[in-house]
Write a protein that binds this DNA or RNA. Structure first.
Lengths: 205, 205
DNA sequence: GCATAATAGTGAAAACATTCACAAATGAAT
DNA sequence: ATTCATTTGTGAATGTTTTCACTATTATGC
């Protein structure tokens, strides 16, 4: 069966809210209530979950902790994935300090740059490595995913280096389309694009 | 006619690449070449454009500058929209310095925070205002869109303040679903979610 | 224990988005 | 001038995602 991409995105969102709910001690939740929290429709949530199994109980809904665990399993969050950030500019720096990542089971295990000003310095307790050493250190640290916050001009070249070292998942903040081998997954986060899309809706009001 | 949401997102991406192409002096481009640059199919590009008119010329493709201008018109980028950033934490700070915004016709006209440590300070040349004065300053500065980089706990409350001042477009970085009046548009950028979605694809390899 | 309300799960229908495939127009080459 | 290659724009076909609507199950109140 083919699982819609949007389903995966939504599962991530459900996960986060289940995390909050668990924290504040909520035991049970119906698809209806969860829907109103996450801003979706109840049937969307039920359908999304149905791709992976059936986790609820007719009449009373879902057990928050169980559902949270199931989604973690689906998304592969249980193993505490190890992530590297490449590019210690403003954005990279902001992301090293972003609590959301660690909270959800990601471990920022290494950071890289190519500038001599930055290599050897510590950023929130993490030693900045020379990007030239990526391959060795990535292996050593068990890096599985890379967050790319390098300047646009450098993005493609560094992508080549990184995928050449066996990385199969990239979160790319540079506003370019990266050419990668077929088995590598890229997710683009394009801040200016998000803003431009919004602008369209401002215009047509 | 109903324009697909993805079409709008893609137009933004086309726009940026047309901008680059224009800068480097490219005069003409076919849907085929543009497609390979932006990572889409040629017919997707043509279909996307067809919702708004017909801008190409059979046999020779599109004039880069003209198409760029047309898309700018569609997305409402021509008027140099004025944007405020609310929340001068790490992420807000990184975004004030993000060149992509200004380059594409957005003007970061004001920044806000609620902390006395930050109010009155300058961030990349912009005076940080007290969030309590939002309404007045937004009117004064002609703010149309807000980038929200406040802590999760504060996001809903500040959204209320901001929409209460007549703002109709929000780019939200806080990982919550914001409740807003029907005529307000919210785009969520959720960094941890993007990473989690990627994680799924790492798992299933 | 029974009636009523709440709720999950899910095929089927509807809505939405992409891709195909081709006609018509243009450009280039000779 | 004619042929051939290129390319757009677009209906139609296909594929994908969401929503509907219903069944079956569980919980609750009396």
């Amino acid at each position: 069966m083919n699982i819609p991409e949007r389903t995966i995105e939504r599962l991530s969102i459900y996960y986060r809210h289940l995390y909050y709910l668990a924290q504040q001690g909520t035991f049970n939740i119906s698809s209806r209530s969860l829907a109103s929290i996450v801003g979706e429709k109840p049937e969307t949530i039920r359908k999304d979950l149905s791709y992976f199994g059936s986790f609820g109980k007719t009449g009373s809904g879902y057990v928050v902790n169980d559902l949270k665990r199931e989604i973690a399993k689906i998304l592969g969050l249980e193993q505490g994935r190890r992530v590297a950030i490449v590019g210690m500019g403003n954005l990279g720096l902001a992301l090293v300090g972003y609590k959301g990542f660690e909270m959800l089971g990601f471990k920022i295990a290494a950071v890289f740059d190519n500038s001599l000003n930055k290599i050897g310095k510590k950023y929130r307790g993490r030693l900045c490595h020379n990007i030239a050493d990526f391959s060795r250190i990535a292996r050593q640290e068990g890096i599985e995913m890379v967050i790319l916050t390098v300047p646009t001009e450098a993005a493609q070249e560094i992508t080549k280096l990184v995928t050449g070292s066996g990385i199969k998942a990239l979160l790319n903040f540079a506003p370019v389309h990266l050419n990668v081998p077929k088995d590598v997954r890229v997710t683009n986060v394009d801040l200016a694009t998000a803003l431009k899309s919004l602008s369209f809706f401002v215009s047509r009001r």
